[in-house]
């Protein structure tokens, strides 16, 4: 009764006792420490009980003493089930085969993943792995442990800083970390930093070299802003001058446009059919039963920048503008 699953594992039987004295039998069984359970009387007055298979065989001498017999009513548990299975060979073979197949397939390497986002192309890593025997559908027991695998892979891929090989179930994850090389800088010779245009310096920061101008200095195109020569006359050293100079830069524009020009344009549609205007600006109108409409007067043309139809008509119009301009040389 206690631990029914244990009884099921060892196998147990329901037994009917025929003949003899049931009380004596019970006492003898308890005296021999044979566990019986669910002891009850069947409707025809026979004692029935459950007993495990090993205990059932131990009951035999007691039964002989008591002069009684047993009849097995039903069999339960794993041993009987296995016996039944042995009769169904194909089914049993299928069960065993399934377990075997599961085991065998789980020892295969099913996927090889490459991770780490390396600049080395995946194909190259995979080729190196293939050379070391890490490929799909490989027996995982043929692979060495991950430490040796990563060491061997690193020999194939000298560009990588670190290679990790991790086995996770049926997949192998290769992590490749690139070695970071220093940024390549262009070679530079000693130089001065020179103004590109005329400007008024607003800010000067010399990272390397000696500043030659100050704030609010007016510089011309070609003036040295930051000198590349350090030191005095006796001892001097030419360096690559470097820095940041900001200044106000202005641009002068001289735009010339003819006073009169010919423009091809479509005639404007006559408003409500009453007015037809000519290109010369003269206005003809015929009023038919409507109030006369005033013709627009031409705009008086004086000096300066007068704009008409979106174009500047005067000559020598100065359009000066202050603008910030950043000069950077590095």
């Amino acid at each position: 009764m206690k631990g029914t699953w244990l009884a099921a594992l060892r196998g147990y039987v329901w037994v009917k006792l025929i003949g003899g004295d049931p009380e004596k039998f019970l006492n003898a069984a308890t005296a021999h420490k044979i566990t019986l359970w669910n002891i009850a009387f069947s409707p025809e007055g026979r004692l029935t009980f459950g007993v495990t298979v090993p205990d059932f065989f131990r009951l035999r001498p007691l039964l002989k003493q008591n002069g009684s017999k047993t009849r097995i009513l039903s069999r339960h548990g794993v041993p009987f089930r296995m016996a039944r299975l042995s009769r169904r060979k194909t089914f049993a073979a299928g069960m065993v085969g399934f377990a075997a197949a599961l085991f065998i397939l789980s020892t295969l390497v099913w996927t090889v993943k490459v991770e780490g986002g390396s600049a080395i192309p995946d194909d190259k890593i995979r080729q190196a792995a293939l050379a070391e025997g890490i490929y799909e559908y490989q027996w995982s027991f043929r692979l060495p442990d991950s430490k040796t695998m990563s060491e061997r892979l690193a020999r194939h891929l000298p560009d990588a800083a670190w290679i990790g090989v991790e086995k996770k179930g049926t997949s192998i994850i290769i992590t490749v970390i690139d070695s970071t090389s220093a940024e390549e800088r262009a070679l530079e010779s000693p130089r001065d930093l020179v103004a590109k245009t005329d400007a008024v310096v607003t800010r000067i920061i010399a990272e390397n070299g000696r500043p030659k101008v100050e704030r609010n200095d007016r510089v011309r195109k070609g003036d040295v802003l930051i000198s590349g020569i350090l030191g005095g006359e006796e001892r001097s050293k030419a360096v690559v001058s470097q820095g940041k100079v900001m200044g106000l830069v202005w641009h002068e524009y001289r735009i010339v446009s003819p006073l009169s020009k010919k423009v091809k344009a479509l005639p404007a549609p006559p408003p409500s059919g009453a007015i037809s205007s000519s290109a010369a600006g003269r206005c003809k109108y015929r009023a038919i039963g409507v109030n006369p409409i005033r013709c627009p007067k031409p705009v008086p043309r004086s000096g300066g920048c007068t704009s008409e139809n979106g174009s500047c008509l005067s000559e020598g119009c100065m359009n000066s503008k202050w603008r910030f301009r950043k000069t950077r040389k590095s």
Partner: peptide, 14 residues
């Protein structure tokens, strides 16, 4: 009525 010995040991009867 309908008594059943669920378990019997040397010391204990249930």
């Amino acid at each position: 009525r309908d008594l059943v010995i669920r378990n019997i040991g040397a010391e204990e009867v249930f």
